[in-house]
Design a binder for these strands. Structure first.
Lengths: 238, 238
DNA sequence: CGTAGTCTTGATGTGGGTCAAGTTGCGTGG
DNA sequence: CCACGCAACTTGACCCACATCAAGACTACG
């Protein structure tokens, strides 16, 4: 397969020791010897924003760690309605190493670099490497917690609280500057709506309202400043 | 502690080999020798319906398998709004063996029997027993899938579809009788509403409507008959 | 300079929440 | 045995938050 001929799908190589997610990815608890074994079966791959990484219903041929960028997990109903069911960042793990087929699409929301493993060899290594399996279990429990937090948000929060909650979760990852946070939004309004179970228009209106009230300030439509995390947290419903 | 003095909290003992969830619980992949080690640290405990098993915010002292009954996981907002974020059945695992504090309450929705382990000894055994850890990872991935399915339901489905989806998921566990399913509802209307992000009244109205249309039939308020899973599936939005 | 994508804003409609009343079934006590 | 209280459930009337429909502003790009 001539990958150079495929737009938005490029390969590159990085040694694990200089990998930006070495400290927090699924491999973070591995010994030097274990890292060597992982190194032997890994591939780096780049995806353009919008590109599909895994298809719903298929048994994914690969799993991997996000080295850079944001990946969204999207579920669809037969009539076309869609709901984002996960949002993954650098260090997070994509795919299911057991035989199970994923029941959602994984799509690059921004330009993404993955550290990919063939599913089968990785699953075998997983079984032989407790450090790897323990870390994956821990990360999966973390994902489960995050999904449950989203259930509360989708089930019980108002549109205003949903938008504030989303911005707050991003602010938690953003660089702080004199008491506030500068947040670059990795998602379009349509994607935020898809994430929060709302429409584009409602998201836009709530962001405008939060801006009017001074809870957030806009640099441009895709970048906000949060002067007080506490204030935003209050708008998020506690 | 004199447990006999505590109403709704009784101890009993069952040998693992005659345990009803031996084939599907977290211990299902364990060897006879590993089961012996689990047996040494396990306790059976009964809970009356409504009793709290784990408190939100606490580092749970125990984890365990559901031997019998239904456990609900509930998250609360500071102002009192609450959302069920999980519904667990016989064989399912309750609690987080890693140090993380659970961020929800686990409550017995029906009379429940748990096979309990002290968290620390179990976590240690987990690290030394790949069969146990692999099974727990697999079960956790299953829970994550279920949570993501609920995200789609809460985010995008109508009240009618939500109720139908809930009944359909129960029908999947219920005994079949000539093409249909007889479903005993383990939850009150209030709990169903808490699960689906609705109010009691809306749940009641949608159930009435589904009954009028012949999608379901009532034995009594807590038991329904589903003549056609396909019909119900259609009402659930596919 | 035109076209397309993103975002905002306004007008209107509706699904489901809120409030209120009533029914049913059950356990408790007279 | 019935009277009472309580919890679960149902049903109706009304209302509002958010969806829908529509239009327009802004930017990026060929």
């Amino acid at each position: 397969m001539d990958t150079l001929a495929m737009p938005g799908l490029r390969y590159s190589h990085v040694r694990c020791c200089s990998c930006p997610i070495r400290e927090r990815a699924v491999c973070s608890q591995c010994s030097a010897e274990e890292i060597t074994r992982l190194d032997a079966i890994k591939t780096y791959r780049d995806y353009d924003a919008g590109r599909t990484i895994l298809n719903a219903g298929e048994q994914a041929p690969v799993v991997g760690s996000i080295v850079r960028g944001v990946v969204k997990l999207v579920k669809m109903l037969p009539d076309g309605r869609s709901q984002m069911v996960g949002l993954l960042f650098a260090g997070d793990f994509v795919g299911d190493p057991s035989r199970r087929a994923v029941e959602f699409e994984a799509i690059a929301a921004t330009p993404v670099t993955l550290c990919l493993f063939q599913r089968e060899p990785f699953a075998r290594l997983l079984r032989e490497t407790p450090n790897l399996e323990q870390r994956l279990l821990d990360m999966t429990l973390g994902e489960l917690d995050a999904a449950r937090e989203m259930l509360l948000t989708l089930g019980r929060k108002s549109a205003r609280e949903k938008v504030a909650s989303f911005l707050l979760s991003l602010a938690g990852r953003a660089p702080m500057k004199d008491g506030g946070a500068d947040v670059a939004l990795p998602l379009t309004r349509a994607e935020i709506a898809e994430y929060l179970g709302l429409t584009i228009e409602t998201v836009s209106r709530q962001m405008t309202k939060l801006r009017m009230e001074g809870v957030i300030a806009f640099e441009d439509p895709r970048a906000i400043r949060v002067p007080s995390l506490e204030l935003l947290g209050h708008a998020a419903g506690g």
